[in-house]
């Protein structure tokens, strides 16, 4: 059985839309709305072009539209369609402008760090900086474990309000913050970063972010006033230990 052209058009467009939505619905990795919008725009145009390449298929494609507009017997459907169309357009426009989901923007979550950082009265070279506690992991596992525990204490006194007691980025205050606090679980955040990077982020906080991390401003405090250097290293050790991640080695 041959499917009529207008129906083919609708099916093709819906199938493509479904395919583009699938990664978000099934795998939790949504394709951004901005990209889907552009993809769909061009898919619709391409399908239209294919279906209007010959006179016959053009005729077939637009026949129902023509009938709808011109056929006196379809007056009821016509009126319904003419009410639904502007409403749909309005709903789409509303979806674009409503503020709830926050504004879409280009933001570098992990911007390139500076070469060097000044804190605690000295300069740190971030390209060579290593966690002084890391060597204990092999040399003195008991001592290392003690440091991790102390790091945990630091975490639950200072960080967990936003980053959450499961280190999943969902703390008590998390829902009030934009951009949201990052989780430490998973392979996407600290697993991709070196410990010196974390040191920089914790010590300098949201105010120390370079411009490319804008336009949204992170509310991460700069901890250099409140935490000692060794406390920062301990909490970093704790973050990796608790989540089972390994820091990314320095250099490329």
């Amino acid at each position: 059985m041959k499917i009529p052209k207008p129906l083919q058009f609708i099916i093709v467009v819906l199938v493509v839309y479904g395919l583009l939505k699938a990664p978000g619905l099934l795998l939790g990795k949504p394709i951004p709305q901005s990209v889907i919008f552009m993809y769909m725009l061009f898919v619709v145009i391409a399908v239209l072009l294919v279906m209007t390449a010959t006179d016959e298929s053009t005729e077939e494609l637009f026949a129902p539209v023509r009938a709808l507009v011109e056929d006196p017997s379809k007056r009821l459907i016509r009126n319904v369609v003419f009410i639904i169309l502007p409403l749909t357009a309005g709903y789409i426009a509303y979806g674009f402008t409503k503020t709830g989901g926050g504004q879409a923007g280009l933001r570098s979550v992990h911007p390139a760090p500076p070469l060097e950082m000044r804190a605690y009265g000295k300069a740190f070279d971030l390209s060579t900086l290593v966690n002084p506690l890391r060597r204990l992991e092999k040399e003195d596992p008991a001592e290392f474990k003690r440091n991790v525990e102390e790091g945990g204490a630091v975490y639950f006194r200072n960080c967990f309000f936003c980053h959450g007691d499961k280190l999943d980025g969902i703390g008590h205050y998390a829902h009030a913050l934009t951009p949201p606090p990052l989780p430490f679980k998973g392979r996407d955040t600290i697993a991709q970063l070196s410990e010196s990077y974390l040191f920089w982020r914790i010590v300098k906080g949201g105010v120390g972010l370079p411009q490319e991390a804008g336009p949204a401003e992170s509310s991460m405090p700069a901890w250099e006033e409140d935490l000692r250097e060794d406390e920062v290293w301990k909490v970093i050790t704790f973050l990796y230990d608790y989540t089972g991640n390994r820091p990314r080695p320095l250099g490329r």
Binding site: K29, I31, P32, Q33, G101, L106, R107, D188, Q192
Partner: peptide, 26 residues
């Protein structure tokens, strides 16, 4: 579509949270 897929994506905060970064795995 491949040609004009940008490398860094324009994301909503909720999308950024789901992806955990500015890059998309696929």
């Amino acid at each position: 579509l491949v040609w004009f897929t940008p490398h860094t994506l324009v994301l909503k905060p909720s999308e950024a949270q789901a992806l955990g970064g500015q890059y998309h795995p696929y």
